[in-house]
Structure formats: C-alpha cells, structure tokens
Amino acid sequence: MGVPFTKAEIRSTEGESAQEAQLIAACQAGNAKAFNLLVRRWERPLFNFVCKYVGDATVAEDLVQDTFVRVVRSIGQYAHRGAFRSWLYSIAVNLCRDHLKSRKRRTVISLYDGYTTVSGKRVSVSDDMPDERARTDAGAEAADRERLVRRLLAGLSEDQRVVILLREYQALTFPEIAEVLGVPENTAKARLHRGLRAMRLQLEREGVSPRNGSGEIS
C-alpha cells in the first residue's frame, strides 16, 4: 500500500485505527489492493446490517456492492471528519432507504414484511417458513425466538429500527449513530427507547414473555 499518513493525520482520525487510516489513504491513492482489503474488512458486518435492514440477503448483496462502489467513487472526498465506519454506514443506510422506498412504490411484499403491526393488524407472517434449525427442540425454540425478533423489529418505524440495528447488532456508539443518521445523539437514544418500548408493548399484546420468547408474561 505504502501511502502512510503523517502523525498529525493519523491523530485526526478519531475512532479509527492508524492501520485503517493508512488503508483509506492507500485507497484514495488508487491502490486496488488496499480497496480490496477495505472490502474484505467491512463486507461481512455491512452485509449483516443491510441484510437485517432490508430483510433480503440477495438484495443486501447488491446494496453492499453498491455501497462499496460509492465508497470508491467518493473516497477521495472522505476527509476523516469522523469515524470511517460512520461514513460507510451512512452510505449504506441511504441506499437501504432508497431501496425500501422503491420497494414500497413497487408494492413488493417480502417475507420480511410479515408482522403484526402495533395496531394489532396481521399483515403477512412467515412463521410457516421452514428452518433448518427447527429439526431439534432447542433449534426450534431458537428459530421461534429469531422469528419473533424479526417480526417485532419489522413492526417498528424505520427510524426506530435502524437505530436498534446499528446499536445492537453493529455496536456503533451513539455519537456514531448520530453521525450516520444526521440527528442529535439524544434523538437517537430516544428513538431506541421508543423502539424497545414498542417491542415490549407488542409482546404484551401477544402475551409473550421477552425472557423466553413464548408463553405468558410473568
């Protein structure tokens, strides 16, 4: 790669390791190998996030790919004002939002959309979807809980869902989430709180305990 940052530049990359800063610098210089490394470093976490966000692995692959395309196109303008991953996730979030908007326009309903809304309306449920893990009791229970979580998250507003996904599954800090979404930190926290509360209320409506994902609430 061989495009080292100066110490001052490295110090300025808050939240980034010096290694990553050098990698980004190499990408900015057009180093293909560096970009490849950057893709390998981030493709899995980004894919997991996008997959949970849009609920479709195939679409997620395309969106992750598009994210990296955008990264390459604009990495020259990336100025290290914040953590690289905040920048990366903000690109991915925008692409996911665009996708979800276009999906609404095309009125495509995926299995992911199956959920009981906050108002209690049953939309379309994928509970009958076969699952490999359902071959054992423990596997079946885990699969049930996973479906429950997916359904609950799908029932949230997009604003609430994305904060939960970024914090819980990607371990972004609240300042990073605020940067990704372009909102104040307290707004991000409030959305997360409301999201968790909405999930809890939905569980209560269904008579399900959050402790084990089934049965009566204690």
Binding site: L152, Y169, L196, R211
Partner: peptide
C-alpha cells in the same frame, strides 16, 4: 423492561 426486551434482540444471529 428495556433490559429484558433488549436481551431478546440477541436471538437474531447474523447471517
């Protein structure tokens, strides 16, 4: 309640 609901989120593993 927040904590118990949060705990449930762990049931959705990564792909």
């Amino acid at each position: 309640q927040l904590a118990s609901t949060r705990e449930l989120l762990g049931a959705w593993p990564d792909a």
